[in-house]
Design a binder for these strands. Structure first.
Lengths: 161, 161
DNA sequence: CTTGAAAGACACATCCG
DNA sequence: CGGATGTGTCTTTCAAG
């Protein structure tokens, strides 16, 4: 299911272009990669079918949406058993403030990336949704000064922008 | 520049639909929101101009690209001064394994989300690109068991999927 | 697997309420 | 600001190489 997929240079070129702008037309893709538009369509469809491309996401500015403050919450869930952590994750994912949830190795079981309006909002979120829960043993809050997205994700050995 | 923007229910509805599938046509958007296609075009163009929509991103499966192992690296950069941390961040961002870099409050200055092929690859990355650097005082590596993307990012008070 | 042409769908501008 | 109409462009299909 998550086996690696064979990607030829055309696929890689398409992925690199689409990661810069996922709305590039098949016509432009074709011109830049050097194949026919219909071939592009076929290749991209195949990449979607094989699961390499999971979907197209809109990148939004949290600050413009009234969520100018972001933070990472390290959460210990005790006891760390399936019947507790399953509902915990689902509840956290459903929070409108949550962006990503990581299940990690190490003493802090979960890392939750949240976007809130301000400090008061963050305090409310931590108190009401985390520390007040019985299964949450400990929460550590770190504010995000700044964050950078990195270059396009590509297979090892093709480390070019 | 990052002031909050006024969004009416139509804008919110459009954003919600586009976050599920950013390639939805204006025609379909119009039908589902209940306005004319040209209005959709106008609204989305305005959302782009006002900076709410930053761009369109492809969501890829790291495992399918031969990067089945992900980790978070907590990095202390000492001394934590501009002339050191600027180049540090740029160098890390340029790594093909890096996905996101966070500058945080707290004892760990940076959190780096990386995607690698396997444990050997991760070990090489940590040793060659982090701990061997003079400005890197400490690196703590946590593996990612699993990660969940959360619901669409929307302004406070509109917490609906 | 790729291509090129044909048909249909769409984006976008313009005009109008 | 929202809705209709038109034109040029793009996407998508298909038969053929």
């Amino acid at each position: 299911m998550d086996a690696s997929v064979v990607l030829d240079p055309v696929d890689l070129h398409l992925l690199r272009l689409l990661q810069n702008d996922a709305r590039t037309t098949y016509r432009d893709l074709a011109a830049r990669v050097g194949v026919a538009p219909s071939t592009c369509l076929d290749r991209v469809a195949r990449l979607r079918r094989s699961g390499v491309i999971l979907g197209h996401r809109l990148r939004l500015d949290p600050a413009k949406l009234g969520r100018g403050l972001q933070a990472l919450l390290s959460v210990q869930v005790r006891p760390h058993r399936r019947e507790l952590v399953g509902p915990f994750v689902e509840r956290v994912r459903a929070l409108p403030e949550a962006r990503t949830v990581f299940h990690l190795t190490g003493p802090d079981d979960y890392l939750v990336h949240v976007a809130v309006a301000d400090m008061a909002d963050l305090q409310r979120l931590v108190l009401d949704e985390f520390t007040s829960r019985r299964e949450v043993a400990r929460v550590e809050t770190r504010l995000i000064f700044q964050q950078w997205e990195c270059g396009p994700l590509l297979p090892p050995g093709h480390a070019e922008s």
